[in-house]
């Protein structure tokens, strides 16, 4: 399998602070890549760069051989959770995801309902997302990321706020998605999640990426 993501000499600075320093790595299609690091190490900024939300100060990011910021603005067929999932508080789960799905207009209501059920939420619940716990919002964030059947999943701390059962459910889900050929980038400060799920593991500390485990 080829590399679906290639990052070369990536750097990102905000004002005088270097957040990412010479990041180099590639991601093979169909693998789960883990990045472990403390809060503030640069994981989220890296993921935002890969999603096209942040413009690198230097270096290149290629997704399926297409360079971000040059050939494409935002990668195609990508699903992501970045930081805490945000939704429209006075809409219920289905309405929130339906609202988002209307932009590409490529999926039916059934796929939205299936995605909500897959993450352990009640797809027919009328409860407004504003009243959800952090764990429920996290699950809805994952549903949002997977509902349109993306090829690449960028998941920033996806287990945040989940109880033990929720963590186990999501681990099973991610492994199932991997079997379907999805490529997953997963960031966490929890070592156990990374060890159980990931084929390759990196550590991030003060913007520098190091290999901890390779295939």
């Amino acid at each position: 399998m080829g590399n679906i993501i290639e990052i070369n000499n990536l750097g990102k600075s905000f004002k005088d602070a270097n957040i990412l320093i010479n990041i180099n790595f590639s991601v093979e299609k169909g693998k789960i890549i883990g990045i472990i690091g403390r809060n503030g190490s640069g994981k989220t900024v890296l993921f935002k760069c890969i999603c096209g939300l942040n413009r690198p100060t230097k270096g290149t990011i290629k997704i399926n051989n297409r360079e971000l910021g040059k050939d494409i603005d935002i990668p195609d067929r990508i699903g992501a959770i970045i930081e805490n999932p945000g939704f429209i508080p006075n809409y219920n789960a289905f309405k929130n995801l339906k609202f988002l799905s209307m932009i590409k207009n490529k999926i039916e209501d059934k796929q939205i309902l299936d995605a909500i059920a897959l993450v352990g939420l009640n797809p027919k619940s009328k409860k407004h997302v504003g009243k959800y716990s952090l764990g429920m919002r996290q699950r809805l964030g994952i549903a949002q990321a997977i509902m349109e059947d993306p090829d690449i999943l960028i998941l920033d701390e996806p287990m945040n706020g989940l109880d033990n059962d929720g963590v186990q459910d999501m681990r099973r889900l991610f492994l199932k998605l991997k079997e379907q050929g999805k490529t997953i980038l997963l960031a966490s400060h929890n070592k156990e999640d990374i060890e159980v799920l990931c084929d390759v593991v990196y550590s991030m500390d003060k913007g520098i990426l190091k290999v901890l485990k390779s295939e």
């Binding site: 935002i74 939704f87 932009i103």
Partner: peptide, 11 residues
């Protein structure tokens, strides 16, 4: 808005 990032990624 709160779901802006998901809109940007799609649009």
């Amino acid at each position: 808005n709160s779901s802006y990032i998901y809109t940007v990624i799609r649009a």
